[in-house]
Structures are given as structure tokens and as C-alpha cells.
């Protein structure tokens, strides 16, 4: 079948302005997108740049957007993308600077961020003269995380990276999990401290895009949530977030539901005059619109005492 590929082009040595090239090639019915790309490069245009390695879905090198869907060119069948016509658009994945054509900048997007979480174990003292063994359940969990082959799809789906490229992103934070949750590491706390810095776990919106995008079922979103929980447990967390969580929990514990007025004020901090002043314009508008009627009252829900008991029991057992 004749397929026309419309491929994103960016030449760093030319005028640098991105454009699009069209190539029509003849492919077999069961061809993959990678088959098409290799044919274009071999027969039509040797200057077209893209990454390829294993050609069988093992390595995560050839991540790209195929007619809008982010996936691997080597496992994507051409026929799955030509139902509406024999044309396929190829673009680099989003949120990541492009070096040339379909080749994006691994350093900027991933390796520098992974380096930032100190992705190596600092072994704690183990048993003398033998391996440091771990229970199977622990290894099973870590093995799943270790199956990450850095394809970039989780970062590509991330909601935060398009507005803040400095955010560490799900791939690097998942690497932080891998080290922080390994009992052989002597300083998991250090890893948590790095992950909870600005641009770390607290900047994640836990929207589950990363988990949905991950082709290995590693669930990066859940890993980030676990890092947060552990940071809380160990008493290291973003100051304002800690106030917010404490206020949220306190109002549910006391009344059964969230007191949003109290939450807004306590999250800023009662002595943070500048922060509190910032709330005023919205608060004033809310009053005018009848969103927050005066006098402001937050009453207890009927089942509040039962909710409080759940809190007390849960907190007791957690200790």
C-alpha cells in the first residue's frame, strides 16, 4: 500500500525554522511505522533524523507522536493509523526540546533530571561476607519500577511539564522512588529530601496521566504519591503543603467535612500577612457574588463524631 508520511522537520544547522516533509512509500499491509521511516531514510532522504534501536518494542528509543498518538514507531502498525486515509503525521513527543527532526534532547528532558535525584544506592552495612538479601515482596515492587526503560511517555503525558519545564517529572521521580524505597540504601531520607524540593513531588498534580501513559505498568503517579506519604511520615515536607494537609485533616476530623475558608487561611499561615492579603481580592469578590455568605459558619455534619473515631483509630494504628 502507498502511504504518505508527513514528518516534522527541524534542522539545527539550517534556518532552524520547523517545517514538514512529505514522503510517499510503498509498504506491505503488516508494516510498522518504523518500517516506513527506515525505507524513507534508505531510499528517499538520508537527512531525516530519528532514533531506533531494538526494533521490537524492548528499548523505548523510538517514542514519537504518530497522528497525534504517542507511542513507539517500531510496534505501531501502519494499518492502525490509516483507517481514514493513507496519510500519517509524525511528530516528536511533546514537552521536550527537539534537536533535529524526530530526535529530542534526552539530556534536558531526562538524564539531567534523573541525575538530580541521585539515582544510585549508597549501601548500608549488610551481613558480613554474604549478599544483602531482600524479602521477595520488596524486590517484586522494586523490580517493577526497575523495568522502566526511559521511553519518555510518562513525561510526555505530564500536565505540569508544559507549564514548567524545570519540574523533575514522573520519570525522574519514579527513579527517586526506586532508590528511596530500597531497604539496602542507607539514606532514603536524602532521596526524599531531594524529591520534596521545589520542582519535586509537591509540584505533581497527581492527575494519573503518567500512569496511563506508561507502557510498562509502573504507575509513576502512585510512586510519587508514595514518596509524598513517606516524606510526611518522616517529617520532611513542603512547609505550606504541610499546613494545608494539617488544616484539611483537622477540619474533616472535627466536623466531618472540609472547611474551605479555614483551609485557605491556615494554608497561607496565620502570621503570613503577605499571603493572607493575596486572598483578599478573591474573597471580596466571593462576598459580593454571594459565594461566601456572612456570617461565615462551618457547622458539624451529622456523622462527624463517627468520622472523628475513624481518624483517632487510624492515627493510633499508624503510630
Amino acid at each position: 500500500m502507498q502511504i504518505t508520511f508527513k514528518v516534522y522537520r527541524k534542522d539545527p544547522e539550517g534556518n532552524g525554522k520547523p517545517g514538514r516533509s512529505e514522503y510517499t512509500v510503498d509498504l506491505s499491509d503488516d508494516a510498522t511505522v518504523m518500517d516506513g521511516l527506515l525505507k524513507i531514510r534508505d531510499e528517499l532522504d538520508g537527512t531525516l533524523a530519528f532514533r531506533a534501536s531494538c526494533l521490537r518494542g524492548y528499548c523505548g528509543e523510538c517514542t514519537m507522536r504518530i497522528s497525534g498518538k504517542s507511542t513507539f514507531a517500531c510496534t505501531a502498525k501502519v494499518s492502525a493509523f490509516t483507517k481514514k486515509g493513507p496519510e500519517i503525521a509524525l511528530d516528536p513527543i511533546r514537552n521536550i526540546p527537539v534537536i533535529k527532526d524526530l530526535v529530542f534532547d534526552w539530556d534536558a528532558f531526562l538524564w539531567n533530571k534523573i541525575k538530580a535525584v541521585k539515582p544510585w544506592l549508597e549501601p548500608r552495612e549488610g551481613p558480613a561476607n554474604e549478599e544483602h538479601r531482600l524479602p521477595d515482596a520488596v524486590m517484586k515492587d522494586l523490580r517493577q519500577v526497575m523495568s522502566c526503560y526511559y521511553c519518555g511517555l510518562c513525561d510526555e503525558g505530564c500536565t505540569v511539564l508544559p507549564v514548567d519545564f524545570d519540574f523533575l517529572g514522573p520519570a525522574a521521580l519514579t527513579k527517586a522512588y526506586r532508590v528511596a524505597f530500597d531497604p539496602r540504601d542507607r539514606d532514603g531520607k536524602e532521596r526524599l529530601r531531594i524529591a520534596e524540593q521545589p520542582k519535586g513531588v509537591w509540584d505533581c498534580v497527581h492527575c494519573f496521566e503518567a500512569s496511563e501513559h506508561c507502557p510498562r505498568g509502573i504507575a509513576p503517579t502512585e510512586r510519587i504519591v508514595a514518596l509524598r506519604d513517606k516524606a510526611f511520615q518522616m517529617g520532611i515536607s513542603h512547609e505550606k503543603v504541610a499546613r494545608h494537609h494539617q488544616s484539611f485533616a483537622a477540619s474533616v476530623k472535627e466536623s466531618g467535612w472540609v472547611d474551605e475558608g479555614r483551609l485557605a487561611v491556615e494554608s497561607e499561615g496565620l502570621t503570613n500577612i503577605k499571603g493572607l492579603m493575596k486572598l483578599l481580592p478573591t474573597a471580596a469578590k466571593a462576598l459580593v457574588r454571594g459565594k461566601a455568605p456572612l456570617p461565615y459558619v462551618h457547622s458539624k455534619r451529622p456523622g462527624a463524631d463517627r468520622i472523628k473515631k475513624i481518624f483517632e483509630k487510624g492515627e493510633r494504628e499508624r503510630k
Binding site: 484539611f248 466531618g256 455534619r301 456523622g303
Partner: peptide, 15 residues
């Protein structure tokens, strides 16, 4: 009426 807040992703799962 006599039920609690879902936790909204803020409360930990154990609560």
C-alpha cells in the same frame, strides 16, 4: 447526610 469527606486525594488512604 451523616457521611464524611472523601479525602479528596489529600487525606492518606489509611484514613
Amino acid at each position: 447526610k451523616d457521611v464524611g469527606c472523601t479525602g479528596a486525594g489529600v487525606l492518606p488512604q489509611y484514613l
